[in-house]
Design a protein around this nucleic acid. Sequence first.
DNA 1: AATAACTGTGCAATCGTTGCCGGCAACGAT
DNA 2: ATCGTTGCCGGCAACGATTGCACAGTTATT
Lengths: 335, 335
Amino acid sequence: MFKPVTIKDIAQALNLSTSTVSRALRGGYEISEDTKKLVLDYAEKINFKRNPIALSLKERKSYSIGIIVCEVANVFFSQAIDGIESIAYNKGYHVIISQSHDQYEREVTNIEHLANRSVDGIIISLAAETKNYEHIEKLHAQGLPIVFFDRILESMKTHKVTSNNVQGAFDATEYLIKKGCKKIAHLANAEQLSITAQRKIGYEDALTKYNLPLKEEYIRYCQHGGSRQDEVEQAVISLLSLPDKPDAIFVASDRLSMGCLSALKKHAAENVLVAGFSNSDVVELFSPSLSCVRQPAFEMGRIATEMLISLIEAKYPVEEFETRILDTVFSPTEN
Amino acid sequence: MFKPVTIKDIAQALNLSTSTVSRALRGGYEISEDTKKLVLDYAEKINFKRNPIALSLKERKSYSIGIIVCEVANVFFSQAIDGIESIAYNKGYHVIISQSHDQYEREVTNIEHLANRSVDGIIISLAAETKNYEHIEKLHAQGLPIVFFDRILESMKTHKVTSNNVQGAFDATEYLIKKGCKKIAHLANAEQLSITAQRKIGYEDALTKYNLPLKEEYIRYCQHGGSRQDEVEQAVISLLSLPDKPDAIFVASDRLSMGCLSALKKHAAENVLVAGFSNSDVVELFSPSLSCVRQPAFEMGRIATEMLISLIEAKYPVEEFETRILDTVFSPTEN
DNA sequence: AATAACTGTGCAATCGTTGCCGGCAACGAT
DNA sequence: ATCGTTGCCGGCAACGATTGCACAGTTATT
């Protein structure tokens, strides 16, 4: 049906060899100007496009990078993807996105799928459920460049990008305290995630600074990262039914924030103040309202991609790795 | 750094030819059980993965399909993508997503990028800005299978999937009428989009049925599909400042609905009722509230993908094309 | 017993492109 | 006049997997 034109066609038409055509097209210095022009003009005329698959086979490089995020329907990740694409396309890579939906199994199959498809590298934010990292470590050990962002794997020696989760959590918690709340609960993500630990530290730092007690029963973890609403609702209900009911909640992620607000609304607990991580652009529409910690998602995506491409194109094995930590911005919602 | 195992390695190790290995791996009937088992076991042992790029080159097929949507950070599209992936992965295709951000230029570069990357077919929902379709028609004429969903190009002879936009718009408008509104405005998407025309028909049908006048000044089009908030805000302001100010707005898309609610809130016009297309899963949190028409996004994605793969795998050129129209569901938000 | 049929395997070409080597002609230097 | 250099180009092989055809060896058929 659809037969693309190849350098062979050009060679035949111009009575040259394929090697000559190939070199002329790439501007090889060993080809006379006349021939070069001849080839270039003809290629233009018949709309020649070089076959990237053949090139990939030859160069053992696909010029594509894989992304794994929990879901694209999440403003933080979609902004990060925009950042990733902005760099990748400029450098001639294309981007294959896959979603783990915060499930371990899907993360495993996705990453293997990507590796089999011969991506040149992977940018990943771990699924909430993931506790075992062999699937990643195996590929990394085989030499596949991997960069982490947001939810990172501390133990792996590679580049990483996160935001300043401790500071962000501190800001949000401090805000709640300054609003007069004294019993601040924490709705957290899956316990093994890097961001969970960091955000918890920020939360506790703020409580400590203002001499509020740290109560373990005020903390609820959501192992599925909020992808199951009942999980979030259960957590919120159990907080609300504590004898010493919280007057505010610091929520550790976008997804959880939505779930938390829903649960509060459903159970007529709108008087509980909420602050949490979210990059939502319609936050002013929410009721109950949500004060939020915003992460520089686009920038994180850009940086992660630059790191990945530098790994991919490195001439020698890279030994020195970098962890970039970007600042968050807290924006209160007054009402 | 990273040298994958090839059938050659297997052949060498087992003292067979590559052809034998190849046939054994795909269960060729012409290979003895003994050899087959030998090869299979060894391949398993050294973790052999066949190189999809080599296969693509030979078969002139990449087993990948391209998706173009305006943005992934939109629940409708992200659900559609989930549907697309659910079918694609099952059938051995992988999915490359790209975003037009409702811009014509980006749609053009994205589609060419995909075509150059030799995707086997494309599923597309047009950008709001797109008025010229040559970039798509050219590829289609060259034989690249293309399926439209949501925002379709009526004039192109290929498979299409949409929801019942007329009915959805009718339901939303009728709801507003039954709530007692008599002056219902319509905030519409870019004028040339298929869905814009259809949703306008539904809107007008409802008005007509209930003997309300059709006023052209109650309709505002957003040429950029709401990707620019000022555009939406201008439209809403101009509606609010009409001498005969509307008491309700029927909004034609998810993005526009968010923009519209923001604008209403900002201008303290929360008494204006809003109903519109949206697949948001946190609609109950919004204030002002939004009654919404939901599209079966996941199902639309599934169907579009099945259609596309049937085109890709068709043995003979397909002449008969189908347009599937799926029902929407209206869910009022009472408060 | 001779031929036909079948079984299991290898050879070589193919997909599109590029790297490497080698060839040929024209040129300048000795 | 001979040699070495340079410029320009063609041929071959290779990337990894598949496949039509050929061929050797075995079994079945007449």
